[in-house]
């Protein structure tokens, strides 16, 4: 464990909590892509199947449970409790265009052809594109509430810190997980455009982020 990975995991947890609390307290999921949250719940489900078969550490187990619980709790807020405020009209990204290539690739490019490993690979590839419906929804509505942009900022920060974690682990331990790194780089690139808008608009105190 290193400071980059630990702070990355904390940023990831903060992002998920920010989103959950925003929906819970505002009793609305307007502007939130339910599809992205469904994809993230699928990412955690397919990645953490080893929760009961492989014990890494208390921290690892606890974080996996917390991520799973919060992911499904957020999905249930969006699709059940506050479904009247769910803007399915704007949340129109065709997720099948993500799921099919990701599933196909996880069968082609993986470390070992076992069910658990293919599902883990699927979750890694899926995570790199899971935010696209949310980013697409923001471009479609042309705006995002500032709390939503803070959620995206912490998600992007988590991914950026994981890149630093991999540089550190390669330098310190010679560790290099090619599938995770390539997928992680692709995922972080998707946040670059958002980061630009975030730093030039939201942090300038303009509150909402409105797209040009």
């Amino acid at each position: 464990m290193n400071i980059f990975r630990l702070s990355g995991d904390v940023c990831h947890l903060v992002a998920i909590i920010i989103l959950f609390l925003k929906i819970w307290r505002s009793k609305s999921c307007a502007g939130i892509s339910g599809k992205s949250q469904l994809l993230f719940a699928l990412v955690f489900t397919t990645r953490y199947l080893d929760l009961f078969t492989a014990f890494i550490s208390i921290y690892n187990t606890v974080m996996k449970v917390v991520f799973l619980v919060l992911a499904y709790a957020t999905v249930s807020l969006i699709y059940f409790r506050f479904r009247k405020s769910y803007d399915s009209e704007s949340d129109s990204f065709r997720v099948e265009f993500l799921l099919v290539p990701v599933a196909g690739l996880s069968f082609l490019e993986n470390y070992s052809f076992t069910p658990l490993e293919i599902l883990w690979t699927f979750s890694i590839y899926l995570e790199s594109v899971a935010i696209l419906p949310q980013l697409f929804m923001i471009t479609k509505t042309g705006e995002a509430e500032s709390i939503t942009t803070h959620y995206l900022f912490f998600l992007g920060l988590y991914r950026t810190l994981y890149l630093a974690n991999w540089v550190w682990r390669y330098h310190e331990e010679g560790f290099f997980d090619q599938i995770a790194v390539v997928s992680g780089v692709v995922q972080t690139i998707f946040y670059c455009d958002f980061f630009y808008l975030y730093f030039t608009r939201v942090l300038r105190g303009s509150g909402k982020m409105t797209l040009p």
Binding site: I56, N60, K64, S112, L116, D177
Partner: peptide, 10 residues
Amino acid sequence: ADEEVAHDEL
């Protein structure tokens, strides 16, 4: 090879 790969990252 179909060995189990241990993934220690979240």
